[in-house]
């Protein structure tokens, strides 16, 4: 559009007849224009891809580090800590009581993190304010029992290999939605390589469609 405006300004107001004068100048301009275009494109694309996620997500450190791998070795499978209650509901992140099944006021190991745990939480009888990577919004109902007990799914399918990790990554919270980056945003393009890369409704639906032949009715997963 500005090209046209350009012309009308340069040309006569009566007629746009002589619009294509000064070819060489235009070519130069175009050449420069292309360069500017490329530079602007690259800068904007890169910042949109690399800088933007940094701005979009706020990083929060967990209260202290937790070594999943070590605990799996000591305590056994995921469900030794992330267990079901008798009513079939899932406990999620263990409460302090669960930790105290093994831990006590005396540290078991020698890590600094355990010292923090004992001093700030065990002795104070305070729950650890963990950030939950896989927390879904309030409108979502999710039955762990249906998926792991009945459908026999692995924890890994949705949660990835967190059980093999030795340290906790920082919790990244979307500044707009308040969602954890693990729900969607691990790959900022939304590209999914592993089943645990995203946990949005479409991801649930995809699997449901495959496994049950139906994406499911609203109330299956909503409350």
């Amino acid at each position: 559009m500005s090209e046209i405006e350009n012309k009308t300004e340069n040309g006569s107001t009566e007629s746009a007849g002589e619009g294509t004068t000064g070819d060489t100048k235009d070519d130069k301009g175009l050449g420069l224009g292309v360069i500017f275009f490329i530079v602007a494109f690259v800068v904007c694309f890169l910042s949109g891809t690399l800088l933007f996620p940094k701005l979009l997500y706020s990083k929060k450190e967990q209260p202290f580090n937790f070594d999943h791998a070590l605990h799996v070795d000591e305590a056994g499978d995921c469900d030794s800590c992330h267990s079901f209650r008798e009513d079939g509901s899932f406990t999620g992140i263990p409460k302090l009581d669960t930790c105290l099944d093994c831990h006590s006021e005396e540290a078991l190991g020698e890590t600094e993190d355990e010292a923090v745990f004992v001093e700030e939480y065990v002795l104070e009888e305070k729950e650890v304010p963990w950030y939950v990577y896989s927390r879904q919004p309030d409108c979502v109902f999710f039955s762990h029992a249906a998926h792991t007990q009945t459908a026999g799914m692995d924890c890994v399918t949705c949660h990835g290999h967190i059980g093999e990790s030795t340290s906790l990554k920082p919790y990244e919270e979307n500044r707009i939605t308040g969602y954890s980056r693990d729900i969607w945003g691990k790959n900022i393009f939304g590209i999914k390589k592993n089943s645990w890369d995203r946990m949005k409704m479409d991801d649930c639906a995809e699997c449901h469609k495959e496994e049950t032949g139906h994406k499911g009715y609203c109330f299956q997963c909503h409350k």
Binding site: F84, D87, G88, A145, A146, Q149, T150, F219
Partner: peptide, 12 residues
């Protein structure tokens, strides 16, 4: 219903 189903799932 969801809660009841949870127990049922859990108890197989």
């Amino acid at each position: 219903y969801q809660a009841a189903r949870d127990i049922a799932y859990y108890e197989g």
